[in-house]
């Protein structure tokens, strides 16, 4: 769902870039606070894996494909700050090196695919595992829902941007309907991949799933006090 240059006008793209810079700055600060020498390499690995996984487009019918966004997966595995940063790194590499997603549109893509998708994914996973249950089945359902809703959240972000700054004079309601109907399928698959990978990590190293750890402040009392 990488937005190319040209779809959204410059003012909205630049506004999104400002939001993206602010969000990334918050995440840099948060990641510095929450990562340690054990989790930092995992965050790097998540970036690499998301890059690779995004190259694998799967068919969703009607001559259309989709690919993993990976933001929900990233935040579940390494936490919201590092997860959002990891996806942002991927988006920057894709835009700069592979011309995948526009350059002016990079801010839009970071907002939708990293900040919104990652934020939604984290809230859904944490909310679900806290209030519904954190056993294996529940965590997998939470991971699926986080993946699914992260995609719909990213679609929502795009639609707001398109409504505000879409260049083409087309029917917004038709675009809304078309975007959601395609991405419900893509989101369902995002959820499946997210749950599969989170499940695999849970069965080998559950302690490496940031989304299942106790809140960090409790884990590092000295740092919280400082």
């Amino acid at each position: 769902m990488h937005i190319p240059d040209g779809f959204i006008d410059a003012p909205v793209s630049l506004a999104a870039a400002a939001v993206a810079v602010g969000g990334v700055a918050v995440c840099l600060r948060g990641a510095r606070r929450t990562l340690d020498e054990r989790t930092a390499p995992l965050a790097g690995l998540v970036a690499v894996f998301v890059f690779a996984a995004q190259m694998i487009n799967f068919p969703v019918g009607a001559g259309t494909s989709g690919h993993l966004i990976g933001a929900a997966l990233a935040v579940i595995l390494v936490g919201p700050y590092a997860g959002i940063l990891a996806v942002s790194v991927v988006l920057a590499v894709q835009a700069l090196l592979f011309a995948d997603g526009g350059l002016l549109a990079l801010g839009l893509n970071v907002v939708n695919l990293a900040l919104i998708a990652g934020g939604v994914g984290w809230l859904v996973f944490r909310g679900w595992t806290r209030f519904v249950g954190s056993g294996r089945g529940s965590a997998l359902a939470a991971a699926w829902s986080a993946g699914f809703l992260s995609v719909l959240g990213a679609v929502g972000g795009f639609l707001v941007e398109f409504a505000l700054g879409g260049v083409a004079p087309v029917s917004l309601s038709a675009v809304i309907a078309a975007m959601f109907s395609v991405h419900v399928v893509i989101g369902a698959i995002e959820g499946v991949i997210t749950a599969l990978i989170v499940g695999a990590v849970m069965s080998t190293r559950p302690d490496l799933v940031a989304g299942l750890r106790a809140p960090r402040r409790a884990a590092h009392p000295q740092r919280a006090a400082a």
Binding site: M1, I3, D5, S65, L103
Partner: peptide, 30 residues
Amino acid sequence: VSFYASTDPDGLESVAQSQGFGETAQDSAA
């Protein structure tokens, strides 16, 4: 594995084509 990935347009591209705003895409500076 990427060689075997679908080359169909992705969700947004496909919607852009069907809804008639695909042509507003411009080549990235990259």
